[in-house]
Structures are given as structure tokens and as C-alpha cells.
Nucleic acid binder design. Structure first.
Lengths: 110, 110
DNA sequence: TGCGCGTATGTCAGATCTGACATAGAATCA
DNA sequence: TGATTCTATGTCAGATCTGACATACGCGCA
């Protein structure tokens, strides 16, 4: 499995635990990727909340549909800077961002 | 005044309100810069807490003293990605990062 | 004063990211 | 089925960032 696919898997709903379970990822890299994915998901949530397509959001962000898609997928070729700026442009507040980053409790195994 | 100096001013203790008071900065740019400055300050706090010089921290981060200095100054040539990764490498958790980002209440004018 | 230590800042070659484009996949509708 | 809409993904030229280096600044100490 390719390390580069991690973000995609995570975003696709592979929330069974954390990134490290699949790959040998250092603690700090895992924390970074998880943070990025959390922000990417928040971005998608903000966009969907406002009933925008990726193309429409791209117009607002002065970017392109493909880049918005990559942001939401937490693609390797996208920086946290871009995701953060986009969140704020879509109306997110610092509190929203902080909340998105705060680690969520994992559901206890039954 | 140069827009590029903003982060530096902020980091240097110009906390009298927000960035927008000085410059015409869009809401979203202001939020972004303030977030970056907050992370930069957190990074410095983590380093100082561990009694490290910028050069020592740079060694741990596999970077250079000058870049660490720029990170802490929230310099324009430094990305949030780099600051975030550095925070995690110095032992910060996602919660630490979320807390650093959460906007602090401004002290009420007497 | 000069020395040592830590920090700040300008510069640059090589690395990485960005918007844009092209194209493919998936879902809905008639 | 084809048409439409939305999303996913590969590529690339130009823009931006990175580590490293050089150098300057500030401060305490002998």
C-alpha cells in the first residue's frame, strides 16, 4: 500500500482507528496527516452546508474544481495553508477550525 | 506600512486588537494570519518550555536556525504546514494545536 | 572593549505547490 | 440509450517554499 493514499483512505471513511494502524507512520506524521484530513473534511462540510458544488466553491475561492476536489481529499499536493485559507473564505471562524482539529473520541469497541 | 510585516508585528506583541486595525486586510486573510501567528507562538512556547535554542530545535527538526526563527516570526516565507509539522515533532498533540488556535478572549478595556 | 551565545534577516538553488486543463467515473433523468 | 451534473485524478508551467549559508544584531560577562 502506498503511503500517498493515506489521506484518501482516511477521508473515504476508513476511520477505524488511525493512520498508523495501516502504515509505519511516525507519531508526528500521523498527527499531521490526521489534522489535515480533519480540516479537509471540515471544508467539505462547509461547502455542502452552503449547497455549493466543487465548481461553485472553486469560483468563490478563485481556484479550480480539481483543486477543490484535491483539498477535500487531503491530497498530497495540497497544503494545509490552502485548506485553511479556503475554510476562512467559506466563512469558517477560528473557533470552527479549532473545533475541527480537536481530536474526536474513538467509539469504544463493543 | 508593509503588509508583509504584519506577522512580525503581531508576534512582537502588537496584540492591541487585531491585524485588521492596521491594514486593510480581508476578514479571511486576517483570520488566516492570526491563526498562523497563534501557531507560531505555540511553537516558540514549546521550544522554550524544553529549554532549546533555535539552533537545537532546528537540529531536532532537521532544519536550520534561520528557518526556525522565521517559523516563530510567522514569516511570509513559511507555511502553516511547516509550523504544524514542527509542533508535532516537538511533542505537541492535536489538542494542543486546537487549543493554540482557539481565539482568546480580548481583555476588556478597564 | 572583545568574546560567546542566541536570535533576526537577506539570498539562492532545488524542491514543492498552484491553478488550469483534460479526461474519466458515477449518478440522475427522460 | 444519451444528456447533464458533479466529482476524481493525471499533468504541467509558473509560483512559492525549503534548508542552508552568510551576516548582523543584542546581550551578558570578563
Amino acid at each position: 500500500m502506498d503511503k500517498k493514499k493515506l489521506a484518501k483512505l482516511e477521508a473515504a471513511g476508513w476511520k477505524t482507528g488511525s493512520a498508523q494502524d495501516f502504515l509505519q507512520l511516525s507519531d508526528e506524521e500521523a498527527a499531521f496527516v490526521e489534522s489535515k484530513v480533519a480540516l479537509a473534511q471540515a471544508l467539505k462540510a462547509f461547502r455542502v452546508e452552503q449547497d455549493l458544488s466543487q465548481a461553485e466553491a472553486a469560483h468563490l475561492l478563485r481556484s479550480s474544481q480539481s483543486r477543490v476536489g484535491k483539498m477535500e481529499a487531503a491530497d498530497q499536493t495540497v497544503t494545509v495553508d490552502l485548506i485553511l485559507r479556503s475554510l476562512f473564505k467559506l466563512g469558517a471562524t477560528r473557533k470552527d477550525v479549532a473545533d475541527a482539529l480537536r481530536p474526536r473520541r474513538i467509539a469504544k469497541a463493543h
